[in-house]
């Protein structure tokens, strides 16, 4: 946005950024409160998988470790599905309803709207972890130090940045009709091949060989590492995630610019 000063008539000012950001966050929160189904889905599905898979496949000995491992898997699944579905479909829908057109005519900087969407999605992601954590601790007897619980949350939230980039790319690149299908088509196989649904250890070799290329694999490694069961050095995982984030945000930015040119050139 241009900040070039042409003239400066007296009394010209803009609303404080903090107020714009605060109000945008509040509006997102109101939106989530009005759409309880959105929340239920992002909480219930991962919890269901966690409970089912954990109960069916838990070994006789070492069950708490197994449940801790799955906590990393399904935590990653929960958070990344929020990033890709809530953000991806949310942005695509906003574009379809031309919410961005009216917004563009107001003094609100474009990034504030996007940032508030991302921040609330992260908030929702953290909330969606709560039932998983409670189930893991109560039923699976997962015992972690406070530091590791915290590390798990931080890894899950920030390790999801590449998937957030993917969500934005879908949101700006796909139509509202295609976004949900596209999100599923990309995200589900990718999560499966990365071992987020079923541990890689019990999958065929060739799947493991493919899996390591996906961002969700390294995301999972980061999560498993924070419960003490990662196979990859966290530093490597982080490096992989940074590269993937750069690529996916780059693609998202291209789609964003294309969308802007179409509408506002």
């Amino acid at each position: 946005m241009s900040t070039r000063v042409v003239t400066r008539p007296s009394g010209m000012s803009v609303a404080p950024m903090s107020r714009m950001l605060g109000a945008s966050l509040k509006a997102r929160a109101q939106f989530y409160r009005r759409s309880p189904l959105f929340l239920v889905f992002s909480m219930v599905l991962p919890l269901m998988f966690y409970a089912l898979f954990g109960t069916v496949f838990a070994p006789k000995s070492g069950a708490p470790e197994f449940f801790a491992y799955l906590l990393g898997s399904y935590g990653a699944y929960a958070v990344s599905s929020i990033m890709i579905f809530n953000i991806g479909i949310g942005v695509a829908t906003a574009r379809a309803q031309k919410i961005d057109v009216l917004q563009r005519a107001t003094p609100l900087p474009g990034w504030v709207a996007i940032a508030s969407e991302i921040v609330t999605a992260m908030g929702v992601a953290v909330v969606s972890l709560i039932p998983l954590f409670i189930f893991g601790a109560a039923y699976g007897h997962v015992q972690l130090s406070a530091a590791r619980w915290l590390l798990l949350v931080v890894s899950l939230v920030f390790g999801a940045l590449p998937v957030l980039g993917l969500g934005l790319a879908i949101g700006y690149g796909a139509s509202a009709n295609n976004a949900p299908a596209l999100a599923n088509l990309i995200y589900l196989p990718m999560s499966f091949l990365s071992g987020l649904f079923i541990p890689l250890a019990i999958m065929p070799d060739w799947i493991q060989k493919i899996g390591v290329w996906f961002p969700t694999y390294h995301y999972g490694q980061l999560a498993w590492n924070s419960v003490g069961q990662g196979k990859e050095e966290p530093l490597w995982a982080i490096l992989w995630l940074i590269v993937w984030a750069a690529v996916l945000f780059g693609i998202a930015a291209r789609f964003y610019r294309r969308d802007q040119t179409r509408k506002f050139a």
């Binding site: 946005m1 241009s2 900040t3 070039r4 042409v6 003239t7 008539p9 010209m12 000012s13 803009v14 609303a15 509006a27 109101q30 939106f31 009005r34 759409s35 906003a94 309803q97 031309k98 919410i99 057109v101 009216l102 005519a105 107001t106 003094p107 900087p109």
Partner: peptide, 30 residues
């Protein structure tokens, strides 16, 4: 020019209210 500024300038836009033909708002909000 809008108020002597580039129409994209936030200071100019802060002085304008807009009702567009084809635009939307979040339908779930009141």
């Amino acid at each position: 020019k809008l108020f002597g500024l580039d129409p994209g300038d936030r200071r100019a836009r802060s002085r304008c209210g807009v009702m567009l033909q084809e635009s939307g708002v979040n339908q779930t909000l009141s």
